[in-house]
């Protein structure tokens, strides 16, 4: 892939100035995160000292509590969140890719109206959906289950994922699909064998966002679960106490929450890179 010469890249300057800008962006992006991580290993006295202290004797006590197996362990919360976010991502990508394909490749009655209707559902502020949904799931006796969060998150993410994947599908040439159709493949086979691999950078990007939105969601998780299925953002919100914010606990949990998302983000990126290979081979 390194064979792509810089001259034929899509018109991007690549000199030392641009590298300098990347460095500035990097500092801007990372500094607050580093600050959160530093806060997680500081005692409260050090957090509030003036001028701000950068280096202090590290205090890992909060990590020991949250990552240990004791009473205050955060591991069950992390597991709940991980499971719910992963399931949501999986379901959303499957369901939305079908819908996106339909919108992208077919001309059918009401297609534009349906696309707008789909968007309109996402325009409703989630807080106004809380009461009707709560009453519904209370009636169905499904409150406080992983199922209820997965279903809600999937529905909430579908409009976004569909629109985005449609945009990516639109950018893929159809010749391959047409020849596959001539070979006798059906619609599902074409979608999963041909279109989706070609659109993999877009799908990777979409699924990272769906995952992160589900991973960080607070309101539905807080309102619809009580005992069995508390997620990690709900635990994080509890560090804002009655009289004080438990800063060290907050920063530690924030760091812990960041990690899985970071790891997944890092590994999903290989699809972003692989696509270039596919492109150049083609």
């Amino acid at each position: 892939m390194k064979s792509i010469s810089q001259n034929i890249s899509p018109g991007i300057p690549t000199n030392s100035v641009s590298k300098g800008i990347v460095m500035i962006l990097l500092v801007f992006s990372l500094l607050p995160i580093i600050w959160i991580i530093l806060t997680s290993i500081k005692s409260e006295q050090a957090i509030f000292s003036i001028p701000p202290k950068v280096f202090v004797a590290p205090d890992f006590s909060a990590y020991k509590i949250f990552l240990g197996l004791g009473n205050n362990s955060a591991i069950p919360f992390i597991w709940n969140s991980l499971f719910i976010a992963a399931m949501t991502t999986f379901l959303t990508v499957i369901v939305s890719s079908l819908a996106a394909y339909a919108f992208s490749r077919y001309r059918f009655k009401w297609s534009n109206h349906l696309l707008i209707l789909m968007l309109a559902t996402r325009l409703l502020p989630p807080v106004t959906a809380v009461v009707p949904l709560y009453l519904m799931f209370r009636y169905l006796d499904l409150l406080d289950t992983k199922f209820v969060l997965i279903i809600i998150y999937t529905a909430v993410e579908i409009p976004f994922a569909t629109w985005l994947m449609k945009a990516f599908f639109d950018g893929i040439p159809r010749e391959l699909e047409e020849s596959a159709a001539l070979d006798g493949c059906n619609a599902l086979q074409i979608i999963y064998k041909i279109t989706m691999p070609l659109a993999s950078p877009g799908i990777a990007a979409t699924s990272i966002f769906v995952f992160i939105l589900a991973w960080n969601e607070f309101m539905f998780a807080f309102m619809f679960t009580s005992i069995n299925v508390r997620t990690i953002p709900v635990r994080l919100a509890e560090t804002i106490g009655e009289m004080q914010v438990y800063w060290q606990e907050m920063a530690t949990l924030a760091t812990v929450i960041m990690l899985p998302a970071l790891i997944i983000g890092f590994f999903m990126q290989k699809y972003l890179v692989r696509a270039i290979t596919a492109g150049s081979v083609k």
Partner: peptide
């Protein structure tokens, strides 16, 4: 025991009461 942060405890309680 179900714990809830200050800003949201009333939301959650009311939702349960109303339902």
């Amino acid at each position: 025991v179900i714990t809830s942060p200050y800003g949201n405890i009333l939301d959650k309680a009311v939702l349960s009461f109303v339902s």
